[in-house]
């Protein structure tokens, strides 16, 4: 067979291929972000209509995502991906923005935007890529770092408590909330397709691995060690119901946490207002 026939079907649709004529993956060896990008590419190419799904990234390791994603991307200011996506949605309600945000981007500098976008229930999919560390700037502690974890700024172990993005999204008013680890690619695919069909603010958190900074400083030097540790720390929602708080310390509870259809969506509200007033003015 010819070499072109054996080429992966995603590659010719990617931004890196369009810009450089070849596939370019900027992530470290074993980084879990490529797995998430793969799943999303599969789902988007299945839908076919790439123009309806603009991809918006914040700053962090996830800002390299457009290189390996299919479709049109916009690279935003740090933490400001959600307001941009809100504007995009209100300007053209037929679009379904897909926001890529890291744990530093969404939960520290963009925390206010995250909560208010969830409160307004804007119709978009938000993918929160959580690798528990600021990977791009050299492995500093993040608001999601689990207690006891060594990072470059917490050499004696993390002593502060960390954020639970899922609880935060549920309380702020998101209407579809799920969390998966990168060791579950089939569940990620199913959940992402569900979020694309859901009307309202959908938040999916992915627990990823960072072998370069999170693993190397915590005696998990290879991606395989990190994956084993991640699998051991994962608890399903069903099992977590029978466990108390001490047992859940440091574990990742995965599953679909919430799906509700009772809250009004922002662009629908504004379209109603415009039709009542006879125009956008």
């Amino acid at each position: 067979m010819k070499q072109q026939e054996l080429e992966h079907p995603h590659i010719k649709e990617m931004v890196s291929y369009e810009l450089m004529g070849k596939y370019y993956n900027p992530f470290c060896p074993g980084c879990g972000y490529g797995i998430i990008a793969n799943t999303v590419n599969n789902a988007l190419l299945e839908r076919g209509d790439l123009l309806s799904y603009p991809l918006i990234t914040g700053v962090g390791c996830c800002c390299y995502m457009p290189f390996i994603l299919v479709g049109n991307s916009f690279y935003c200011l740090h933490g400001r991906a959600l307001p941009f996506a809100t504007g995009l949605k209100l300007a053209n309600p037929k679009l379904k923005p897909i926001v890529w945000s890291g744990d530093g981007d969404c939960l520290s500098i963009g925390m206010g935007h995250f909560m208010h976008t969830a409160r307004r229930n804007v119709d978009m999919v938000m993918l929160l890529l959580n690798n528990e560390v600021y990977g791009m700037t050299g492995g500093q502690m993040a608001p999601t770092t689990s207690s006891g974890v060594t990072t470059t700024t917490t050499p004696f172990g993390m002593r502060e408590s960390s954020f639970d993005a899922v609880k935060l999204a549920i309380d702020a008013g998101a209407t579809y909330v799920a969390r998966w680890t990168i060791a579950q690619p089939f569940q990620i695919a199913k959940s992402f397709r569900k979020a694309l069909d859901h009307r309202g603010f959908s938040m999916i958190e992915f627990i990823s691995i960072c072998p370069t900074y999170r693993g190397r400083l915590n005696e998990l030097p290879s991606p395989v060690d990190m994956l084993r540790q991640l699998k051991a720390d994962t608890v399903s929602l069903k099992d977590a119901a029978n466990m108390d708080e001490d047992q859940l310390e440091g574990k990742h509870v995965v599953g679909e946490f919430l799906e509700r259809h009772d809250r009004p969506e922002l662009s629908t509200l504004y379209e109603k207002l415009w039709s009542e007033r006879g125009g956008r003015g």
């Binding site: 054996l6 992966h8 079907p9 995603h10 590659i11 596939y23 993956n25 992530f27 074993g30 980084c31 879990g32 972000y33 490529g34 797995i35 990008a37 793969n38 799943t39 390996i68 060791a183 690619p185 089939f186 695919a189």
Partner: peptide, 12 residues
């Protein structure tokens, strides 16, 4: 194929 971050192993 689903677990490869770099599209280096796949089924066609």
């Amino acid at each position: 194929e689903n677990m490869c971050p770099d599209l280096a192993i796949y089924i066609m």
